[in-house]
């Protein structure tokens, strides 16, 4: 929930008109094309989209992990606590990465190195970003492991990943990602689907981490279920642009962009019988060959003449709710 005090705060992360293009053999691909959003401390933003929507490239742009070339951040600002990350040198940026913005990957199996002990890996993460004496690195690592509720943290420090359960490994990954007290945590969804109970454990851990350090949390996901359970705000991406943005209740109760509306109607429900799901015809467009006008127009049930000609501007639906669709004009 966004409460009053947080909403008036200065946002911890502000992205303004971010554009990331890729040079490919089919021409320029506008993977992220004018994305803007902000995030406050303690708030959770869901960046929702399908593959090819640009959500992952947005995340990589925030971390400045775009391979250059073929990629290039063409324009925009990424303000972290008022400082524009795009103006930093690579050295400065590598200090920001991990210490101020951290990335957490859901799969605990692949994100820990099997040949180093748990303590070693946590201490390594601390040493990279903080200049503190050896003795206190140990203390600090222990402290972080306790923070993520790892029982018997002291003995666990000497354990290797294979000696721990999946849930515990997840917690270690969480400990590493918050070890340097980042202000923004980006949770990237794995491409392979995890078991529901493991996912539930992971989501609970993230909530804990967020509460612990008053983090701004960004979920990169395609699953509206995760959004419903975890997020305060939602930005829906399609073909490199944010097509709708609002609070989670705005989005679920009054979806204003036909794509959001269609996506919500096409997801089966756990709690009720659905006679027939709405099915969005066609497939997401190829980014190197976008139709003129609104890229969703070919699949949109409400398509109008205007949609095929001109990309719609962003219309304000409500105070914090906006969408880019000509129907709102």
């Amino acid at each position: 929930m966004i409460n009053g005090t947080q909403a008036t705060d200065q946002p911890i992360l502000e992205v303004k008109d971010l554009r990331t293009y890729f040079q490919t053999r089919w021409g320029t691909v506008k993977a992220v094309d004018g994305v803007s959003f902000d995030l406050h401390r303690g708030e959770t933003l869901g960046l929702v989209g399908e593959s090819g929507s640009g959500k992952s490239v947005t995340m990589l742009s925030l971390m400045q992990l775009i391979p250059i070339p073929p990629g290039r951040i063409v324009s925009g600002e990424i303000l972290l606590d008022g400082e524009n990350l795009l103006e930093l040198t690579e050295d400065q940026m590598s200090k920001v990465r991990g210490s101020q913005i951290a990335l957490i990957i859901q799969d605990p199996m692949t994100s820990l190195n099997p040949v180093f002990s748990i303590g070693n890996q946590v201490m390594e993460a601390i040493k990279i970003h903080q200049d503190i004496p050896r003795k206190s690195v140990w203390e600090k690592a222990l402290d972080v492991l306790r923070k993520v509720n790892i029982p018997a943290a002291e003995t666990r420090m000497r354990d290797y990943p294979h000696q721990m359960s999946g849930g515990m490994r997840q917690r270690v990954v969480g400990a590493i990602s918050i070890s340097c007290q980042p202000s923004v945590l980006i949770a990237d969804e794995p491409t392979t689907s995890l078991d529901v109970t493991i996912q539930a454990q992971y989501l609970k851990l993230l909530k804990e981490l967020q509460r612990e350090s008053n983090l701004g949390l960004i979920f990169i996901t395609h699953d509206f279920g995760i959004v419903a359970k975890m997020c305060d705000k939602v930005a829906v991406m399609y073909a490199g642009k944010i097509v709708e943005q609002g609070t989670v209740r705005d989005i679920f109760n009054h979806p204003s962009h036909p794509y959001t509306e269609a996506l919500l109607a096409s997801v089966p429900k756990l709690e009720e019988d659905v006679d027939r799901l709405y099915s969005i015809e066609g497939q997401p467009p190829a980014l190197h060959d976008l139709p003129p006008g609104c890229p969703f127009a070919p699949r949109c049930p409400y398509v109008m003449e205007q949609c095929r000609e001109e990309y719609p501007p962003v219309f304000q639906v409500d105070e914090a709710h906006s969408a880019a669709c000509w129907r709102l004009a």
């Binding site: 890729f22 691909v29 993977a31 593959s51 090819g52 992952s56 490239v57 997401p284 980014l287």
Partner: peptide, 10 residues
Amino acid sequence: MAEATGRLTA
């Protein structure tokens, strides 16, 4: 990078 290459149509 799959994001950038887009998808093949048939």
